[in-house]
Design a binder for these strands. Structure first.
Length: 527
RNA sequence: GAUUCCUUAGCUCAGUUGGUUAGAGCAUCUCACUUUUAAUGAGAGGGUCCUGGGUUCGAGCCCCAGAGGGAUCACCA
């Protein structure tokens, strides 16, 4: 039995290189300021709750003023956040206070915060020992400056937390031009806490992501489905065609895999007698990384008994329309992606794969055998190799010539059986299965089928997959005897779907890279 | 995995044909300033030029290898 490596050799426990490096001048200054604050008898990391009453943005949006520029609809306000800019002019100063909602200007005058003889609170603490990035709390009143900027006149201020490292200082002028932006993607992704502090505009992507998931969840709840959790650590990695992450359970001394899909477990729950289940699930696939692939990604899957893929198309439309409304501007179902405006209002166009290929290439693949498909590929100048079977050839034609044209939400239906080992055979079309994918902006957003519930057919499909594995296909599905046993106990007809959350968020927020919609995208370890 | 580009101060970036002690703005430090707003004015400090080799009298710059990142392509969702 293999021994686990020593914990200190694990990359994530290795100290960052910067800990060994000499501290920069600015870091030394901040540590000295920290010491001075303690010397004044002030705790730079206080424990007590700070009673915030207002957010910056609420004041900026709602404040109304009298003739003396004092706010009429705000009394005493208490805010907390980071100091992001300071402009000291002798005995008075302006600063930018940034909280979770945005940034508001505060006005600090020496004799207001230090009314007695001792001016240390202003001269030392505020002017000298306060650094950009420090957390403070302020109490004061809302007013408008000579130049018209809504500000808070500070009467009391409280130190709430020291920043020992300098934040990048991003400045924006009155024309909206940004200077010294913290823009290096590597630094942004590795230090998302810095990124979202100095580039708060990116927070909106994650707020939309959160709203989208909340909306989908409430839709599925309203549909009567039950949210469930299924294993992430699995003894057999089933439910999709992908290479898994392998790990090992020490006590059981067995290999385990991080799930590449949760489909087979959700179907077991349909067997168990739940009429509808859903799961927002992290999936893990040990494959390439690029701007549309992260090793872990999120999908929502749901399975509903006594339904078929036609019902699922209707439901998918309704779900997406509802979800996009919750994220879009003013409840709109439309989003602008590059030069395209995409409308998620249903119904969406429904097109069989064969009809789609006919429409965009003029080639008829209905009833075409492998040799005829190869001839079509040659006419269309599509590169193929000998290992490709019928299903793969059709998939190539679709991927090369059709997919990219499908900008508005479009259901592509009726896939070749070879590509779909978990899907029920089509009720009337030989060689096809009852499957659809939803294409939006030229990319797949959802994948759904009438679920295969015939255990004998399912076993044959697994056996076909094993043959692929023997030929060297390392993405083929392994046999799952327990899943087959479950089906043998009987599963009702069921419709199931998986919707990729990350790509949907990318679409709805106009992001070209999946890294922009993940808080902590996977990166190589820092050197 | 392939191709290609990038890596210089805390941040954003210059850096000529290979040539003295590597520069700028912001940030930092000192001083002045009670309604400023990319605050301003005066002065100062701050560098593993990604790493390791090599060529050369001399390398941030040229060559080789490596690391990390971006973009494009292939596979996957």
């Amino acid at each position: 039995m293999q021994l686990a490596p020593l914990p200190t050799s694990l990359p994530y426990l290795r100290p960052l290189k910067t800990q060994y490096m000499e501290r920069s001048e600015q870091e030394l200054v901040r540590r000295e300021n920290l010491r001075r604050i303690r010397e004044m008898g002030i705790e730079p990391f206080p424990a007590a709750t700070f009673p915030v009453t207002h957010l910056a943005t609420d004041i900026l949006e709602q404040a109304e003023f009298d003739d003396e520029n004092k706010a009429t609809n705000f009394g005493e306000v208490t805010l907390a956040g980071r100091v992001m800019a300071v402009r000291v002019m002798g005995k008075a100063a302006f600063a930018g206070l940034q909280d979770s909602s945005g940034r508001i200007q505060i006005y600090v005058s020496r004799d207001d915060i230090a009314p007695g003889e001792d001016k240390a609170l202003y001269n030392d603490l505020f002017k000298k020992y306060l650094d950009l990035g420090d957390f403070i709390g302020i109490k004061g009143f809302v007013f408008r400056t000579r130049t018209g900027e809504v500000s808070v006149h500070v009467q009391e201020f409280t130190f709430l937390g020291k920043a020992l490292r300098p934040l990048p200082v991003v400045k924006t002028d009155e024309d909206g031009n940004t200077y010294d932006a913290f823009s290096d993607p590597e630094a942004r992704y590795r230090m998302r806490y810095v990124d979202l502090t100095v580039n708060p505009q990116y927070k909106e992507i994650f707020r939309k992501r959160s709203r989208l998931i909340t909306a989908m969840r409430s839709f599925l709840d309203d549909l009567g489905l039950m949210e469930v959790e299924t294993p992430i650590l699995q003894p057999i990695h089933g439910g999709a065609a992908a290479r898994p992450f392998a790990t090992h359970h020490n006590t059981l001394d067995v290999p385990m895999y991080l799930r590449i899909a949760n489909e087979l477990y959700l179907k077991r729950l349909i067997v168990a007698g739940f009429d509808g289940v859903y799961e927002f699930a992290k999936m893990f696939r040990n494959e390439g990384m690029d701007r549309t692939h992260n090793p872990e990604f999120t999908a929502v899957e749901f399975y509903v008994a006594y339904k078929d893929y036609n019902w699922m198309m209707d439901t998918c439309e309704a779900l997406l329309e509802h979800a996009v409304k919750s994220v879009g501007e003013n409840g709109s179902t439309r989003v602008t992606v590059g030069d395209n405006e995409i409308d998620f209002k249903g119904p969406y166009r429904r097109l069989t794969m064969a009809d789609a290929i006919m429409e965009y290439t003029g080639e008829d693949i209905n009833g075409a055998d492998e040799a005829e498909l190869r001839a079509i590929c040659q006419r269309l100048h599509i590169h193929v190799d000998k290992t490709m079977g019928r299903g793969k050839l059709i998939d190539e034609i679709f991927g090369e010539k059709v997919e990219g044209h499908l900008i508005q939400p479009t259901f592509i239906t009726d896939y070749p059986v070879e590509m779909s080992p978990l899907t029920k055979k089509h009720r009337s079309k030989e060689g096809l299965v009852e499957r659809f994918e939803l294409m939006v902006n030229g990319k797949e957003i959802a994948n759904a089928y009438s679920e295969l519930n015939d255990p004998i057919d399912q076993r044959e499909r697994f056996e076909e997959q094993l043959k692929l594995a023997d030929r060297g296909d390392d993405e083929s599905m392994p046999m799952d005897e327990d899943f087959l046993r479950a089906l043998e106990y009987g599963m009702p007809p069921t419709a199931g779907i998986g919707i990729g959350i990350d790509r949907l968020v990318m679409l709805l927020t106009g992001q070209k890279s999946i890294q922009e919609v993940l808080f902590f995208p996977q990166m190589k370890p820092e050197a």
